[in-house]
Amino acid sequence: MMWPSIALLTFVTLQRLGELVIARRNTAALLARGGREVAPEHYPVMVALHAAWIIGLWLLAPGRPVQLFWFLVFMGLQALRLWVLATLKDRWTTRIVILRGAPLVSSGPYRFLRHPNYAIVIGEIATLPLAFGLPVYAVVFSLFNAAILHVRIKAENAALESAMILK
Rank of each mutant, 00 (worst) to 15 (best):
M2N: 10
W3K: 07
S5R: 06
I6L: 13
L8P: 01
L9Q: 10
T10K: 05
T10S: 14
V12Q: 11
Q15R: 11
R16P: 02
L20W: 13
V21N: 07
V21C: 08
A23I: 06
R25A: 13
L31T: 00
R33K: 12
G34M: 01
R36P: 00
E37L: 01
E37K: 03
E37H: 02
P40I: 05
Y43V: 08
P44C: 05
P44S: 13
P44Y: 13
V45Y: 14
H50G: 07
A51W: 15
A51C: 12
A52P: 00
I54W: 07
I54H: 08
G56C: 03
L57A: 09
L57D: 02
A61Q: 06
A61G: 04
P62A: 08
G63A: 03
P65A: 13
V66Q: 02
L68D: 05
W70T: 04
F71W: 11
V73L: 11
G76D: 11
L77P: 03
Q78E: 15
L80I: 09
L80D: 09
L80R: 10
R81W: 13
T87C: 05
D90A: 11
W92R: 10
T93P: 01
T93S: 13
T94V: 03
I96C: 02
I96Q: 01
V97M: 08
V97W: 01
I98H: 01
L99I: 01
L99V: 14
P103W: 08
L104H: 11
S106T: 15
G108K: 12
G108H: 14
P109K: 12
F112M: 10
L113S: 10
H115A: 01
P116Y: 12
N117H: 10
I120Y: 04
V121K: 07
I122N: 11
G123C: 02
G123L: 04
I125D: 00
I125A: 01
A126D: 00
T127L: 02
T127C: 14
T127Y: 00
P129W: 05
P129A: 01
L130Y: 02
F132N: 00
G133K: 00
Y137R: 04
F141V: 01
S142Q: 05
S142W: 00
S142A: 15
S142N: 03
F144Q: 06
N145A: 14
A146I: 04
A146V: 00
I148G: 02
L149T: 05
H150F: 10
V151G: 00
V151D: 14
R152L: 14
I153Q: 01
K154N: 08
K154C: 04
A155T: 09
E156I: 06
L160G: 03
S162Y: 04
S162E: 15
A163F: 10
A163N: 04
A163D: 07
M164I: 03
L166E: 07
